[in-house]
Amino acid sequence: MNLQLLVSGIAMGFIYAMVSMGMVLIFRAVNIVNFAQGEFLMFGGYLCYMFNRQLHLPIVPALLLAALAMGVVGVIFMFTSYWPLRNAQIRAIVVSAMGASIVFKEGARLIWGSIPVTVDRVVKGTAVIANTAVVQWQNIAIIGISFILILFVYLLLERTFIGHIMQATAQDRYMASLVGIPVVFSIALTFALSAMLTGIGGGLLAPLFFLNNTMGYTTNAKAFAAVVIGGFGSVPGAVIGGLLVGLIEAFGGAYISTTYQLVIIYVVLVFFLMFRPQGIFGTRIQEKA
């Protein structure tokens, strides 16, 4: 077993988990697969670049500010791309999200140019594990920070009252308004949370892979695969799916081919669709007949 590859695969996996979990949060809230989720990763990374490299803040406050800014971006996204179309056909909203992803991509190019950029590492240097593997500290930092953030969001949804209110809104919007929940507010909160979680991922990823404005596209494809593999709509499923995608990518890239990483992921996806279409975790909620 190649330990070095394992660690970097898990680290990438956690980044994908933050994208796919963000995707699932929005899916559960409004029943739409958000094909602009990968752009949240890209845009969050660029915002982090702005705070860190252009405004010269240390990386940790830069990450926090980028996350807050992404919360605002998520709310703006919801009010422009989703809310006006909430009663329209689903495909109209999917197309609108795709349009928004172009706006993000070109917007990032206009603001920050098309030359790839990077940000500081949270932890510099490398560590030697078990006397053999040389692992970048940033990978360890990604694993630790992402794990904490994912757990935090999960507990927020499952264990707090505001989380239950958001779940109630996601499950039955009409009823939610009948118990006095301001539905717009509750949905906006979900979008903000989703964009923050995914956006921080961009800032964590940037020191390892340079940011460029088109990276959202492949990220969307991988996150979508992760969501399907994990079980559509399941939050733990999205996390496990993300981790799997990261690992498949790392090992597939090392032992098979780096050019065909995405193809390998999709081969696994097809296998899942053939033999376990409900994904690793089926859906938790069943409709009673």
Binding site: F161, I165, Q171, D172, V179, I181, F185, K288
Partner: peptide, 21 residues
């Protein structure tokens, strides 16, 4: 609310007089 427990459903019913919290 199908994915919430009975007690969580009841708790959500208090938003109306106690607000979001």
């Amino acid at each position: 609310f199908p994915g919430l427990t009975v007690e969580e459903n009841l708790a959500v019913g208090t938003v109306v007089n106690r607000g979001m919290r």
